[in-house]
């Protein structure tokens, strides 16, 4: 469950990108947020992903007001949220496998749990050929897949995608969509931030659009 209360997304002190956001996103829903480049989409994505602080208003994630959380509580909440960035967000000096399993290692999962999770995911996403490769030697598509694998390996309660389907092959888009629907079924809230001209296979529970500095329901 995510609730945004009187949130303003600002570029700087003088310029507001999105004003007075008041929305409620229930658990297990598939949401789309559309907006042109520079409309504040990525800034909102980062705020929901706890990468940026909220300037004004309140953000409630899984029933907790993020402004009032301690470092430890915040890190516990972080482990429930996964983000897939539009650009490469992988650690270059680690291998593909190390990048994928990093969230599990960091949350002290056992060796067996990690192994099972990797085997399941890798065959589904068809990335077993590149597991030992260096990040620098991957194509953009492969990087995207590795980021996606890293995001869902922990089975997060909230999954945020920033322009993820951009430039993705129709066949892979379908495959990923099935995976997203499976995650949705187990209660994951999925929010996909998209450009306006993006085509989508998925049918969303709610679609929002950033228009005239406001987030409006479509």
């Amino acid at each position: 469950m995510i609730r945004l209360e009187n949130i303003f997304i600002k570029l700087n002190e003088n310029k507001t990108l999105i004003s007075n956001i008041n929305i409620f996103i229930p658990s297990g829903s598939l949401i789309s947020i559309e907006g042109k480049a520079g409309s504040g989409k990525t800034k909102l994505f980062k705020i929901l992903g706890l990468k940026d602080k909220v300037d004004t208003g309140n953000l409630y994630i899984l029933g907790k007001n993020v402004n009032k959380l301690s470092r430890t509580e915040l890190s516990a909440l972080h482990s429930e949220i996964s983000l897939v960035f539009e650009d490469n967000d992988l650690i270059d000096n680690l291998s593909v496998e190390a990048n994928i399993i990093l969230p599990l290692i960091m949350t002290n999962k056992s060796k067996d749990e990690i192994e099972i999770a990797v085997n399941e995911l890798v065959s589904w996403l068809n990335i077993n050929q590149i597991l030992e490769k260096n990040i620098l030697h991957l194509s953009n598509y492969e990087k995207k897949m590795v980021q996606f694998a890293r995001a869902i390996i922990t089975r997060p309660r909230i999954l945020l995608l920033d322009n993820f389907f951009n430039g993705l092959d129709r066949e892979y888009e379908k495959k990923i969509s099935y995976l997203l629907l499976a995650l949705k079924k187990i209660g994951t809230t999925i929010i996909s931030f998209r450009s306006i001209n993006n085509s989508a296979i998925l049918s969303y529970n709610e679609s929002y659009k950033i228009e005239n500095f406001n987030l409006v329901r479509q």
Binding site: G49, L50, K51, R71, T72, S75, A76, L77, H78, S79, E80, L83, D89, I91, L102, P103, M106, T107, N108, T154
Partner: peptide, 16 residues
Amino acid sequence: KVFLEKSRNFGAKDRD
């Protein structure tokens, strides 16, 4: 720094 940032985003505790 990138590793620390990512680890923190994946829920790693500062102490760990």
